[in-house]
Design a protein around this nucleic acid. Structure first.
Lengths: 143, 143
DNA sequence: GTTAATGCAAATGTTTTGCAGTATA
DNA sequence: TATACTGCAAAACATTTGCATTAAC
């Protein structure tokens, strides 16, 4: 079985946590990576089935949970409908959702640190994550 | 039927949009208002049934959708489990979620405007909403 | 009296779980 | 070979919908 499809780092993470590197996992991670980051479970399933028609939806869900647990992907809830998953990209980034077409754009903005400081001091919280979400209309949908 | 339980503004909004002011709607809005803002559909249902045991869950869902449409409540997805609803409080405010106990704290922070400007210019988006979400551990859960 | 809103039950859609068979290490 | 992972089917769960009845206007 080919293992080249799954990046070394992911492979290492799976391996070092005693998780087996299966065909299905390699494929799912590959699709998530290529998918631009914002796929829901069903979309991931559809795409994966084009390559592995026997793959089941439960496998998709089980592995998304595993990837989440291992920190390989992040889960977002932009709309009321579905969860979206994206491969983690290290740096803190935020999201911009177009209400017209549903497109999600990532952006970085150095707001985290100052905000962290202020809020942390104000509420006694230990802050572990910050995310800014904005919604609006993209240039195309404004027409 | 008593209508005093439902604030004048909400009553006006319902009335002016040709929606009937029912017992159930008055009760639901009342509970949402008292609930500190962060209730999910089922919690709202449970509390409402203490006062109106015959009230049905579909009524809760139907009215939450109506309230959303009229702009009376906001919907948030903090965790993977449920949606949370809160009555709108006019001013832009953000949320802080404790990963230990699930507590949600609101805070205001003047980050919106500058961020709006910068991002709007950068992506050509027309920004209609901004929300900052932070997760962490509250002072009690840190012990 | 009209018509919108409700309660109930059934339908939908997504996510989870049990289990026997399969593939990885 | 041992056991973790998979596929399948069924279960669980939240949310929505159809329809006859009830209540607001």
């Amino acid at each position: 079985m080919k293992k080249t499809k799954i990046k070394r780092t992911s492979w290492q993470i799976l391996n070092s946590s005693k998780q087996r590197v299966t065909n299905q996992r390699a494929l799912l991670l590959d699709i998530l990576r290529k998918g631009g980051g914002h796929l829901d479970a069903n979309e991931l399933y559809e795409r994966a089935r084009r390559k592995q028609p026997r793959l089941s939806l439960s496998t998709v869900y089980r592995n998304l949970q595993l990837f989440k647990k291992l920190g390989l992907v992040d889960e977002h809830h932009f709309t009321e409908e579905h969860f979206h998953y994206e491969v983690k990209s290290g740096g803190e980034h935020h999201h911009l959702l177009c209400l017209g077409c549903g497109k999600v754009i990532e952006f970085t903005y150095p707001v985290g640190y100052q905000l962290r400081e202020d809020i942390s001091r104000g509420c006694g919280f230990e802050i572990t994550g910050v995310e800014v979400r904005m919604v609006g209309l993209c240039s195309e949908c404004r027409k």
